[in-house]
């Protein structure tokens, strides 16, 4: 049984990694077809020469950084408040937001913004994407931080107050530092999910606020293209670096 299991695991890990590996390898191929004709960085040159992609990447970075920072703060405070005393309504809506299909979240926000814009004279833009991304990231952050809170010694804050700290200082000096690794992990999750999101973003982004997934998607819908392989490789490497850095921070 043990051998069979190991063999199976090898196949399963291959299933997880071979597609990504092939994708990366062929981003360095000369030919646009899936036949190896020689090493080349042409597709990367094409990526860096593409101003539309550069602009979209910048938009994606702005959105991801802003929305993950906001949701980290809001989600952490919410998790802490709920941990102190239950708040069934907020907890319920956070869980509901997690089980709501992305497409439904997207169209409901679209409908909401259209309705609001009838009264307030604004249009869709980058900020509507940030508002939407924060809305679905709060739940992720709250769940990750709650998991961390549960491992915390409940006497910790009492000890701080016992030693003379006010409730606010006890939170700031004791609870928050103890939660920091969880908050960093949660913010990173929010950052990646936000950077990667296509479904909701495409519905609530303004005409002049295209994101990188939107550009990739538009090209991919017309079929494969080695330029996308190159961008994908860059994304995989970028995300990988982020995760390794965050692991280092966490272990310190």
């Amino acid at each position: 049984m043990k051998r069979g299991l190991s063999l199976y695991a090898a196949v399963a890990f291959a299933f997880l990694y071979v597609p990504l590996f092939v994708l990366v390898v062929f981003s360095f191929n000369q030919s646009r077809f899936t036949i190896w004709t020689g090493f080349s960085l042409d597709w990367y040159r094409a990526v860096f020469a593409n101003t539309e992609m550069a602009e979209a990447t910048w938009n994606s970075v702005v959105i991801a950084v802003t929305s993950s920072a906001l949701s980290a703060v809001i989600g952490t405070l919410a998790a802490y408040g709920i941990w102190k005393r239950r708040s069934p309504l907020l907890t319920g809506s956070l869980y509901l937001s997690l089980v709501t299909p992305e497409i439904v979240t997207g169209i409901s926000l679209l409908a909401f913004f259209q309705l609001v814009f009838r009264v307030v004279h604004l249009t869709l833009g980058l900020y509507t994407v940030v508002l939407a991304h924060v809305a679905f990231s709060i739940a992720y952050v709250a769940i990750v931080v709650t998991a961390r809170l549960r491992t915390l010694d409940p006497s910790l804050e009492e000890a701080a107050m016992d030693l003379g700290a006010t409730p606010w200082r006890a939170f700031w000096r004791v609870t928050l530092p103890a939660l920091a690794p969880g908050i960093i992990a949660a913010a990173l999750l929010a950052l990646i999910v936000s950077f990667d999101d296509y479904v909701i973003t495409s519905l609530v982004a303004g005409v002049d606020s295209e994101t990188l997934p939107m550009v990739i998607y538009a090209i991919a819908r017309r079929g494969a293209n080695p330029t996308i392989n190159a961008v994908s490789t860059l994304i995989v490497v970028g995300f990988g670096a982020l995760i390794i850095i965050s692991e280092r921070v966490r272990q310190r």
Binding site: P19, L20, V22, L23, P213, I228, I235
Partner: peptide
């Protein structure tokens, strides 16, 4: 890793 990238990998 990006879900979009992983889906594209299969397209490829």
């Amino acid at each position: 890793t990006s879900f979009l990238v992983r889906t594209y990998a299969w397209l490829f």
